[in-house]
């Protein structure tokens, strides 16, 4: 008799594909938030599988802070070309220029939190009724409470204390006009699962994730990439180090780790041995104990 048994990566994959297909079936105009980070890369890979041999029935939406790693942009553009995808860019710079958001000031200024307004504007303008993202529950404590299908009111806000119960695999995506949903197909994956899956599937990744030489400086215990977008204090010394990134986001708040990990196997070894979470290198979460919860309530991803 056949052994009817799936290993955990296959089971997680099956669950995520199921969620992606529910999105295609329940919503009229869904989009996939794509940052060029590993989580959104995995979601896109799962979407390719979910609808094969048809094309992915979603638009990709990149909320662009303007403070990007060039490698991430190049990777994004190549991927879009390779799979014939549709990409929309919601620009934080434009939102600043037209006055919908105001740039933060000071040394720790970051455009990370500013992404919420252009995101909500893009959702409204393009009439997206669902925005999927690569957020995972293991990332952060407020995200541990998140549903697969997460309701947003007409202002794009999340009400964590009044979430719809989510049972078995029955997802309720019903909503009123003007409301939308955020959907997180890889909710149940951990950082380790993501890397193991990338390894199993041999998914091509942006070079930023692998060890490379880069000009960096230290601020509050985190090593950041030196760039034209960051104003350095006189005490901050820029030096060249061998680093890689565990997450890829806005360049001004994404910390690097010293690492010699040059292959996927090296990265898996490193993640297994690591004593800090990947968000330990993210300055945006360190602002307060409930920083993520507050941003999410306002409509952040």
């Amino acid at each position: 008799m056949t052994d009817y048994h799936l290993n955990h990566l296959k089971e997680l994959e099956a669950e995520s594909i199921y969620v992606l297909r529910e999105v295609a079936a329940q919503f009229e105009n869904p989009c996939l938030l794509f940052s060029g980070g590993k989580d959104s890369i995995v979601v896109l890979h799962l979407a390719l599988k979910a609808f094969y041999p048809a094309s992915v029935p979603f638009t990709l939406l990149h909320v662009d802070t303007g403070h990007n790693f060039q490698e991430a942009l190049d990777y994004r553009d190549e991927l879009v070309k390779k799979h014939g995808l549709r990409l929309l860019v919601a620009s934080v710079q434009e939102a600043i220029d037209n006055g919908s958001v105001r740039e933060e000031k000071g040394f720790n200024a970051s455009r990370n939190a500013l992404q919420t307004i252009p995101l909500l504007e893009a959702i409204e303008k393009n009439k997206f009724d669902c925005a999927m993202g690569g957020a995972r529950r293991d990332e952060e404590k407020a995200r541990a409470k998140e549903r697969f299908f997460s309701h947003r009111d007409e202002f794009g806000q999340w009400d964590p204390k009044n979430q719809r119960p989510e049972l078995w695999n029955i997802f309720n995506g019903r909503k009123h006009v003007g409301e939308h949903f955020r959907v997180f197909p890889i909710s149940n994956w951990t950082e380790m699962d993501v890397w193991q899956y990338i390894y199993q599937e041999q998914i091509e990744m942006p070079s930023l994730y692998f060890s490379h030489k880069r000009k960096v400086f230290e601020r509050d215990g985190v090593w950041y990439a030196a760039s034209e977008f960051i104003q350095n204090k006189p005490t901050e010394i820029i030096e060249e180090r061998i680093v890689r990134f565990r997450t890829v986001g806005d360049i001004t708040c994404t910390g690097a780790v010293f690492s010699e990990a040059a292959t996927l196997e090296d990265i898996i070894q490193e993640v297994a041995a690591s004593r800090t979470t990947e968000r330990g290198t993210r300055a945006d979460d360190k602002r307060s104990e409930a920083a993520m919860e507050d941003r999410k309530k306002a409509g952040y991803f």
Partner: peptide
Amino acid sequence: GLRAEREQGITIDVAYRY
């Protein structure tokens, strides 16, 4: 994970751990 839960010292919602 939620602010209200930490303030009140209770678990309100389902939290998923890995």
